[in-house]
Amino acid sequence: MNGSRRTSSVVGNGVATGLLWISPWVVGFAVFMLVPIVMAAYFSLCEFDGLRRPVYIGFDNFRTMLSDPTFWKVLKNTTIYAAFSLPLGAVLAILFAIALNAPIPGRTLWRALIFVPTLVPMVATAMIWMWVFNADYGLLNAVLSWPCSLFGCRPPSWLQDAHWTMPAMIILSLWPIGHPVVIYLAGLQDVPTVLYEAARIDGANAWQRLWNVTLPLISPTIFYNIVMGIIFVWQVFAIPQIMLRGGGPQQNVYFFSMYLYDVAFTFQRFGYACTLSWVQLLIILSFTAFAFQLSRRVVHYQGGTP
């Protein structure tokens, strides 16, 4: 960046001009984010039913939370969901991207087909998969019935069986994988082919090339996708809410945002809901901060750190 040269030649600069240009965003941020976050912080210390004025009760809501079994349940569910869907999604997306980056016949078509599910609105996704997962007439069990009959077992009743609701949600989370695949593909295209040739001359096999050339060079992309994944996975709402409102059998897929929604808009306990929302915010922030810490050691930026 040759910032100093630019500064001297462009007039009308300075903090005032800069702030003027970003002022629309600043106003929007203040009104639609900062004010709500501060309000949430205050409500989280209140008893608030949405009708009468909020009553300050100190940290009672936090105490309620710690002894609320449903809170622990949704925390556990969301953690399990995140712990499976994030790594599985990352590995699968990288594999697909590598496969689709190679010059194979029909590449454009396969890319498009994998990407299309990301365009389906989530409400429709939820309904399509309720139908796919349908125990008696669904597509998945129609396909599974053949291998299952070979081994003499029955295909699972995905959405009615407490053991299978979580696997169903994790499988479903992999469907819109086209989005990260496209981002990984872009990352792979930035890897200079010279490096692969050099590695080949040095006698590196395919596995070594993947481990020592490809992965380090796309590590910034991996990092980006993981951070985005952390932020989104903790907010998962629409799909489980429509498929299994209240979390299905034994509440095994009752996720954090679903509980938050219910506490607020079903039980009208807005104060307690704000406590939960602050906890959710802190969880996302700390996981992201942790990822950033880790990235300092693992992520490799071409041309130094940004």
Binding site: F32, M33, I37
Partner: peptide, 10 residues
């Protein structure tokens, strides 16, 4: 990083 659920109630 601010999730929508964190601000939806206020």
């Amino acid at each position: 990083m601010i999730p929508f659920p964190a601000i939806m109630i206020p």
